[in-house]
Amino acid sequence: MSDNETPILATLNDPEAIHLIVLTGMSGGGKTVALRALEDLEFYCVDNLPTALLPQLVQAVLQDPGSARRRIAVGTDVRNRGDDFRHLPQVISDLAEAGVQVHLIFLDCRDEVLIKRYSETRRRHPLAVRGTSLADAIATERRLLRPLMAIAEKVIDSSELNVHQLRRLVATGYAQAIEGLTLMFQSFAFRRGLPLDADFVFDARCLPNPHWHPRLRPLSGKDAPVRDFLDAEPLVAEYFADTARWLDAWLPRFEQDDRSYVTISVGCTGGRHRSVYLVEKLAAHYRAQREGVLTFHRELE
């Protein structure tokens, strides 16, 4: 730690109100997915932040009088400067000593799975410079990250997890900063099968389908033209109102039963238009009432 960082730690006020999750791990292990899950849980998320700026970030959140969020998630990996990993344990220790609730999470993955993921996505590994094979880059990264893995509060192996399973694992593991029930709204295509982890499934195939309009077909339920089309359909408004009314009546029963996580799935034929639209609309409806609302679009991600 440099001397100029000490005054920053000394000026922290109400540090116990801060939950800071530091996400690191193997490139391709799912850090971006984990950050997205935490962002859905109302964490203030920053990716690839230099270690030296962590105390400043905590202080900025604490000193912002208009901010109600006291949960921060920061991603750091081998894209950071080389000395970042050497200083990170000390920075975490200093923040914890100041009273910040710091959690270091390491996302791991088997080498053969990482190689397959990079091959499928055609992305370049951050350490795969000219003349370095992908396998060698992964081995170098694993060596550089070994000290952080050793001190991590939790190591998550994403080798056998799909995107949704990883998001759910992160959300359920760190929703303790959220009071009440965490809701996952997910869209899917019936033609690709039902999601196995759904607690409730709603079928939107009876609604008008934007797919049959050539102008709307390439878009998704997140796009304004599709939203406008569905907003104008009375049957869609009735379907949403009935679904929200049913969930409003029954979700409190699950909270009383000490459930911490419920997955609500909405399906349509292709999983791109009606189900996506309804998931986004339902999520917005419940985010206005509570914290801990996540979304996942199986056919879009």
Rank of each mutant, 00 (worst) to 15 (best):
Leu145Val: 02
Leu145Trp: 02
Pro147Leu: 05
Pro147Ala: 06
Leu148Glu: 00
Ala150Met: 02
Ala152Val: 01
Ala152Asp: 04
Val155Asp: 01
Ile156Arg: 02
Asp157Gln: 06
Ser158Thr: 15
Ser159Trp: 02
Leu161Asp: 03
Asn162His: 04
His164Val: 00
His164Leu: 11
Leu166Met: 07
Gly173Met: 04
Gly173Trp: 02
Tyr174Asn: 02
Tyr174His: 10
Ala175Gln: 10
Gln176Met: 06
Gln176Leu: 04
Ala177Trp: 06
Glu179His: 14
Thr182Asp: 05
Thr182Ile: 07
Met184Ser: 02
Met184Thr: 01
Met184Ala: 03
Phe185Gln: 00
Ser187Ile: 03
Phe188Thr: 05
Arg191Tyr: 13
Arg192Ala: 08
Gly193Gln: 13
Leu194Ala: 15
Pro195Arg: 08
Asp197Ile: 09
Asp197Tyr: 08
Asp197Phe: 08
Asp197Cys: 08
Phe202Gln: 09
Asp203Pro: 09
Asp203Val: 12
Asp203Gly: 06
Ala204Asn: 11
Arg205Met: 14
Cys206Pro: 00
Pro208Ala: 12
Asn209Leu: 13
Asn209His: 14
Asn209Trp: 14
Pro210Gln: 05
His211Glu: 12
Pro214Ala: 12
Arg215Gly: 01
Leu216Lys: 02
Leu216Phe: 04
Lys222Val: 07
Asp223Gly: 03
Val226Met: 08
Arg227Phe: 11
Arg227Cys: 13
Leu230Pro: 01
Asp231Cys: 06
Ala232Phe: 07
Ala232Tyr: 04
Glu233Asn: 04
Pro234Tyr: 09
Pro234Glu: 08
Leu235Gly: 00
Val236Leu: 08
Glu238Leu: 10
Glu238His: 10
Ala241Asn: 14
Asp242Asn: 07
Arg245His: 15
Arg245Phe: 07
Trp246Glu: 10
Leu247Phe: 11
Leu247Val: 05
Trp250Pro: 00
Trp250Leu: 07
Trp250Lys: 04
